[in-house]
Design a protein around this nucleic acid. Structure first.
Length: 539
DNA sequence: CTAGGGTTAG
């Protein structure tokens, strides 16, 4: 049967969407937890591979009727749904966390003294809101476990594993994985171990990531093609395609391979500018009886785009045609974007024309790129027209489209436009992310709009967007350049208090500015903080 | 998450 929390998320999702994007829906529904026979049968379009071009008038009623039949199927859900409306718990909980307790234990104590009760929705939201803030995240997670009648879902465990990995707390991360395993309830899945491997790879612990893969069966997870691809992808994306290749060599004879396995390597070699290795992998792929597909070719096209070798890009498009491999929206996006960035705007627009004549439909990401290159070329009016036109074509702007529009509005100091777009996003139920807020924050620093800055910080919090080290760096730097040193110092302190390691450049600019203004006392304070920063965990 | 993101320079 469909897990309750999952149903609730689905419910919230369908309640909030004006323009359904099927991808997250499928992600929500299509997993082993949800495929049991007792559940009302899912609408068939959810499982169909054609996730694009489903229109709203069709999807929403279909989903709504499924949700209704599900409610009948499990009447207890009605109660949960009505309690969804009480968003005061999250506010009260957040207020307590604002006290910035120094350790998770103290968070637990504070929460024990409150009359809050844990629920899946509440914990999920807190973990999102504090995903870059370990003390409150771990505190709430630990506290919720002690609440009677509450049990963490596997997804919440997975989120916590991910948060610990992101914060480089690898020992704690492993402890938690073992704790999940001890529950003996199939809590550790490939989703869990995927996060583990990815975080280890990102932390440069390549060997440990491989070890995690080797030991998958200890947690009852199968070492299949999907698991191996996950590991290889994690390694290849973190600048270590060589490690990915080693994994490939070691396991290729005892693990089933698929096209994806080879594409991950091709992509990795291309990204690392090792074209010969990429070509060798392509040959090896053929030897294994796999035919290069659009993904394989697109990786090569991207490589030549990076090299600005557009003659070679054309050749590859031709080769694809010969081989009967149709380029898709991704392929066209890459080619157009690269031409636009290389200031060959007319050639870029030709790609758009070619795409249309080839019968390939643009998607939101494609339009975002088009808007980006037009704006970059100073053609703001055309960019705006495309932004309006895409909706008429039935493609709703996504977070990247809005971020692109907001970035350029900020770059041209069109404050009002930028904020209106942010508001429009909300109306469209399109959630902003850190990259959406970054240009807005930067603009506020530059123009010394402290009230707007404050508004944005609250906006972020309300949208569960947790500030990361990069965003703190942007704030400190921007405020330094605008002479708002007091605020710059307080963000620096906040950053350090979250165990983030400031970059040298961030530290340097702050010290320099404090020196310039002869603020000796504040400078000493910052130096003291910096000396207490724990050096990055190594080996 | 097998491929498409502009990020931290004036």
């Amino acid at each position: 049967m469909l897990a309750k929390h999952k149903f609730l998320r689905l419910f919230r999702y369908y309640n909030s969407q004006k323009n359904p994007n099927i991808k997250p829906l499928r992600h929500l529904i299509c997993n082993p937890l949800c495929t049991a026979t007792e559940s009302p049968e899912l609408p068939s379009w959810i499982k169909s591979s054609d996730t694009k071009n489903l229109d709203e008038d069709f999807v929403i009623p279909s989903l709504a009727s499924w949700v209704e039949s599900y409610k009948l199927h499990d009447p207890s859900l009605a109660i949960n749904i009505s309690s969804e409306k009480t968003d005061t718990d999250i506010d009260r909980l957040s207020k307590i966390l604002k006290n910035r307790y120094p350790s998770p234990d103290e968070v637990v104590q504070a929460l024990d003294g409150s009359c809050l009760s844990a629920s899946t929705g509440l914990v999920e939201q807190i973990l999102r809101r504090f995903s870059n803030d370990l003390v409150p995240a771990v505190g709430v997670f630990t506290w919720a476990k002690t609440q009677t009648g509450y049990r963490h879902t596997p997804e919440i465990y997975n989120s916590m594993v991910d948060i610990l990995g992101k914060g480089k707390k690898f020992d704690l991360m492993w402890d938690l994985v073992r704790e999940m395993d001890d529950l003996n309830d199939g809590y550790v899945t490939l989703a869990t171990m995927g996060k583990v491997m990815r975080r280890l790879a990102r932390g440069g612990k390549y060997d440990e990531a491989v070890e995690a893969f080797r030991g998958l069966d200890k947690f009852g997870v199968t070492r299949d093609a999907m698991a191996m691809n996950l590991l290889m992808d994690a390694l290849a994306k973190e600048k270590s395609v060589e490690h990915a290749y080693e994994v490939f060599c070691e396991f290729k004879d005892c693990t089933p391979l698929n096209v994806g396995t080879f594409n991950i390597l091709i992509y990795g070699w291309c990204k690392a500018r090792k074209l010969e290795d990429a070509e060798r992998t392509m040959d090896e792929m053929k030897k294994h009886g796999f035919v290069p597909d659009v993904v394989s070719y697109t990786s090569f096209i991207e490589h030549y785009c990076r090299e600005k070798d557009f003659r070679k890009v054309d050749e590859l498009f031709m080769e694809m045609q010969e081989k009967g491999c149709k380029p898709n929206a991704v392929t066209y996006t890459i080619a157009m974007h690269a031409l636009g960035k290389a200031k060959q705007i007319n050639e870029a627009l030709e790609v758009y024309e070619k795409m249309k004549s080839d019968g390939c439909l643009p998607d939101a990401k494609f339009y975002s790129s088009l808007i980006f290159i037009l704006s970059k070329a100073g053609r703001t009016k055309d960019a705006n027209e495309i932004f309006e036109d895409m909706k008429k074509q039935g493609v709703m702007p996504d977070v990247l489209t809005y971020t692109t529009m907001i970035s350029f509005a900020c770059e041209h100091s069109r404050e009002e436009d930028a904020l209106k777009l942010l508001q429009k996003m909300e109306e469209d139920s399109c959630k902003p992310d850190l990259k959406t807020y970054a240009p807005l924050l930067k603009m506020c620093c530059k123009k010394r709009r402290m009230k707007v800055l404050n508004f944005l910080l609250i906006h972020m919090f309300r949208n569960d967007v947790s500030i990361d080290a990069g965003t703190y760096a942007l704030l400190v730097r921007g405020l330094c350049l605008s002479g708002k040193l007091e605020l710059a110092c307080s963000f620096f302190e906040e950053m350090v208090s979250k165990e983030m390691v400031p970059m040298n450049a961030t530290y340097k600019i702050l010290i320099e500015e404090l020196n310039k203004k002869s603020l000796g006392e504040a400078k000493e304070q910052i130096e003291k903080l910096m000396s207490q920063v724990k050096p990055r965990e190594s080996v």
